[in-house]
Write a protein that binds this DNA or RNA. Structure first.
Lengths: 339, 339
DNA sequence: TTGAAAGCGCTAACAC
DNA sequence: GTGTTAGCGCTTTCAA
């Protein structure tokens, strides 16, 4: 037997008793079902207010089979990209009366499938943000997670809407930008090996290099933080390049700061680009050339797609949505020095 | 009548039927209740695996009266301070097997009480982060939200644990730091009027000014963003001060950038301090004097307090916990110019 | 050690 | 228009 109702607890039964009607009638009133006599409805409402009745969403969810909650799973809640995506989803979902249950997989690839399905049981649907698990794993559990929407995981998972920033396009635009400025010796300051978005950049740059045999493209390890850019200065100078494409704005700013300390002039001696176009980027010295991405908009669109699935609206248009970053050329890039 | 069990759905009843036992026995097995015969337990477990049985947490929550979920309500999910607090709570709660349901009140003070109690019905407890509502409102609903824990709301709410950064102490340390460097004309670049943490800084600075009649302290409006600092340059120069205490690091960095554009030397002409000690602060030119706060630790401690409440452990020690920021003197502050 | 049965709080089909 | 009743999926008391 379940726990006895605690004496203080005000449930639908208490309201029904106090108003002299059946629980069903109270339920109808609370749900705005207008087959209820206006007088009775008014009385029920008044009693509910007096008793400070708060419907228990658990009971409701159990019988209705829906929780009006969606789960968002991110690899790292401390990462600004995922924070922005979460914000976009949460704000958009809230407008439609949905709540967000979050889970931070802490980059533990192996836990992701378990975490996701655990999450799914408590929610009406799941949004997976940049999942690290293999495509085999992902495809394997996709069915059990539906409704499922993917953010920043551009793999083709059948029947699964996916919203991703086209990092490959962005980094190519940046590469072409410095190419057009005459640079032929270019370095890419790589992001974390595990990062999907780094992998995408890498692949695109390899294509770029293949298409431009006149360009010498170097790949240097760095990371995703300001510090990693700052400590990559020596590597960059040793490489003897005239332009550096950093993994993101933070890395670029770290590099900028390191180069400044060495007395290397930007963009006269070396051109530097970032990625993401964070608000700071316009204010560095010199202002940072970057590629703007609006990951919160991606999150918002992911929600809208989820909403469609929840409403069982027939899917329209393609499942795969790609957001192109916008090139923001600024002072940190200039003509290649005449060598 | 509730929705009929969908034919595909695997519930505890399906497992019980397949294993030839009662639902009660399956329940006992799933919950590690060892009054079950080892053979039967093994068979039940095997059947559960074969059928891929996933217990429905909703049914469980309903009967147990707990969801193993806590709610975190923040005024703005885009604010780095609240993101960090959320991260701290979420990571710590996850270690104890709890999930986090988030709500962004979007700075709508009036909605906060409703949002909070709505949240509370779905969760076992609520953590309110920097709630904007009045102390009257807060005290009014506190009882109905318990277990309740407060972050960055140092008001005395009876019986309610509260964890806050002592912004007043931090800004006073910064003020004393520039005072000790000989500055007598100091400006405070104020944060958003609504921000509680701004209010605290303001009050402390007024105390500081009263205690140091030799100091002329000016209050200048700014905001919380890089841009607001950048566009406050004229105000600062007009004020004719030799030291500026910015609301936070972002504002300070904006100011630094603006001063640089004007050819004003830092710290030779003007000293500048930030607040928060974000990772960037060590890398600006010159490196920024700041006050370090670890809001994620605050979040973590808030969770631990909540965990104690959930376990009904007798509260020990004080309810109110204050975290002192640590002064980080760096190159952006120096001796006052000789006037 | 196991099963039957009640009940957590709610909704909805059905009967009146 | 309203009440009765069954049932959502689970746990737990009680009896066997």
């Amino acid at each position: 037997m379940g726990k006895k109702a605690s004496p203080g607890r005000v449930g639908i039964a208490a309201v029904a008793a106090a108003a002299g009607v059946s629980p069903a009638t109270v339920s109808r009133v609370m749900n705005g079902n207008y087959t209820v006599d206006a007088q009775i409805a008014a009385r029920v409402r008044q009693v509910a207010t007096e008793l400070n009745y708060q419907p228990n969403p658990l009971g409701r969810s159990l019988v209705l089979g829906k929780t009006e909650t969606i789960g968002v799973i991110v690899p790292d809640l401390a990462n600004p990209t995922f924070q922005a995506a979460l914000h976009g989803v949460s704000r958009a979902a809230a407008k439609d009366g949905y709540r967000v249950l979050i889970a931070d997989s802490a980059e533990t690839t192996s836990e992701e499938p378990i975490l996701s399905s655990e999450m799914r049981r408590r929610c009406d649907g799941v949004i997976l943000c940049a999942p690290r698990m293999s495509i085999e794993q992902l495809s394997g559990i996709a069915e059990s997670l539906r409704p499922l929407v993917l953010i920043n995981r551009p793999d083709d998972v059948p029947e699964t809407p996916s919203f991703s920033v086209d990092y490959g396009h962005g980094i190519t635009e940046l590469a072409e930008h410095v190419l057009s400025l005459g640079h032929r010796h270019i370095a890419y300051l790589a992001g974390p090996a595990r990062s999907v978005s780094h992998g995408v950049r890498l692949a695109s740059l390899e294509k770029f290099a293949a298409a431009h045999p006149e360009v010498e493209l170097r790949f240097l390890e760095a990371g995703s933080s300001f510090e990693s850019g700052h400590s990559a200065v020596d590597k960059v100078l040793d490489a003897g390049v005239t332009a550096v494409l950093a993994f993101n704005d933070l890395v670029a700013m770290g590099l900028l700061s390191g180069l400044h300390e060495r007395g290397v002039k930007v963009p006269e001696d070396i051109s530097v680009t970032g990625f993401d176009d964070i608000p700071f980027a316009s204010y560095t010295m010199p202002p940072l050339t970057s590629a703007e991405v609006s990951i919160d908009v991606v999150g918002e669109r992911a929600w809208q797609s989820m909403r469609g699935l929840l409403r069982k609206e027939p899917a329209e248009g393609p499942l795969k949505h790609t957001f192109e970053p916008t090139l923001r050329p600024r002072g940190s890039t200039g003509p290649a020095p005449r060598g």
